[in-house]
């Protein structure tokens, strides 16, 4: 019987949907191998996040609310998360493979003497964890041979879990982050201001490549606006400064799988495909018919993006009246 502890992801006091994708993994694991799951909410003034998780069938929602947890400093968060896991007897700790999850979980694993598997996309019947390797060109099934296990979950591979009703108890955990002794100080956060949906949560994504140059937003924004879509970018477009790092989709950026993905003026490098090839419908628009992006696209349009995308935007707008 396993006890799974799920680290909740939140931003500005609101629960992030990736937590529910991660919950879907935990429910699968518990359904296969028996046990139960709890949530861990770490942060400061985050009681609302704990409250939002009460209807999801957890044994308990543990709330570690402490001023020194206000920013996700990995050493402090990992200590509190491991302390909590030990105190409730959890033998598995899971979190979404976001930059916070990636930063915090390995340190948690060391504290628990646990092996860690990153970016899990599926669970096998024998208890192995499937994960993409070599930019998703191969899938590795990995076994963790330690009693305690730590897992980061690729959110796009699991449909968000539904609420089940009920009211899990919120249990305060007396966190001791020992931040002072970790020799780290938070200095600042320069957030991307956007009213668009989060890339991880968007059902439609309009992504642009280097080919859009300094007209990156001029081309992608109007289309994203009519579709209520998120905007994404290739590494090349980010490297050249046309889009901020937060928009990068790919092997080392964000991994997405929306219902509809527009790949505009991009070549379709292996590293980018690794971040989007599980999208349901892919549309490629590029003036060069030989680009590899057309090999993964459901619909390809060989055209100049500067002409075709505004036309596409206008036609969709007209359809929607």
């Amino acid at each position: 019987m396993s006890k799974v502890l799920i680290l909740a992801e939140h931003d500005k006091g609101a629960l992030k949907k990736v937590t529910l994708n991660t919950l879907a993994f935990a429910r699968q694991y518990v359904a296969k191998f028996g046990g139960s799951y709890d949530f861990a909410v770490l942060g400061h003034n985050v009681a609302g996040v704990a409250e939002a998780l009460r209807g999801y069938g957890a044994g308990a929602v543990h709330l570690a609310d402490h001023a020194d947890l206000a920013h996700p400093i990995a050493s402090a968060w990992a200590k509190v998360l491991a302390d909590l896991a030990k105190s409730i007897g959890a033998d598995m700790v899971v979190a979404p493979a976001t930059t916070t999850g990636k930063d915090v979980l390995p340190r948690t694993a060391v504290r628990l003497g646990a092996g860690m598997a990153s970016d899990i996309i599926a669970l096998t019947d024998s208890g192995a964890f499937a994960r993409p390797m070599w930019a998703g060109n191969l899938t590795g099934n990995v076994k963790i041979s330690t009693a305690n296990k730590v897992i980061s979950v690729r959110a796009s591979a699991f449909d968000a879990a539904e609420a089940t009703g009920g009211q899990s108890p919120v249990v305060a955990f007396a966190a001791d982050p020992a931040l002072a002794s970790t020799r780290v100080k938070f200095v600042s956060f320069d957030g991307v201001q956007s009213t668009r949906p989060d890339l991880a949560e968007a059902t439609t994504i309009v992504a642009g490549g280097r080919g859009l140059k300094d007209r990156f937003y001029a081309v992608t924004e109007p289309l994203a606006d009519v579709l209520g879509a998120a905007i994404g970018a290739t590494r090349a477009a980010v490297d050249d400064g046309y889009a901020p790092n937060d928009l990068q989709i790919g092997q080392t950026g964000k991994v997405v799988a929306p219902q509809l993905y527009f790949a505009i003026a991009m070549s379709g490098a292996v590293q980018h495909l690794a971040g989007m090839k599980n999208s349901k419908v892919i549309v490629a628009i590029n003036k060069n018919p030989d680009e590899p992006i057309f090999k993964v696209a459901d619909y390809g349009l060989v055209a100049d993006a500067f002409v075709a995308v505004p036309e596409l935007t206008a036609q969709i707008k007209a359809l929607r009246g």
């Binding site: 646990a114 092996g115 860690m116 598997a117 192995a128 993409p132 390797m133 998703g136 060109n137 191969l138 899938t139 590795g140 099934n141 990995v142 076994k143 963790i144 041979s145 330690t146 509809l260 090839k277 419908v281 892919i282 549309v283 018919p289 057309f294 090999k295 993964v296 696209a297 459901d298 619909y299 390809g300 349009l301 060989v302 055209a303 075709a308 036309e311 596409l312 036609q315 969709i316 359809l319």
Partner: peptide, 29 residues
């Protein structure tokens, strides 16, 4: 602590169709 027990090649995506213009793209979508 972690061992690879098997590697496999995930089933790839197949190329779809090339549409002739924006109008056909909108219609197909």
């Amino acid at each position: 602590k972690v061992q690879i027990v098997g590697l496999s090649t995930p089933s790839g995506r197949k190329a779809g169709v090339i549409v002739k213009d924006v109008e056909e793209l909108v219609q197909k979508l």
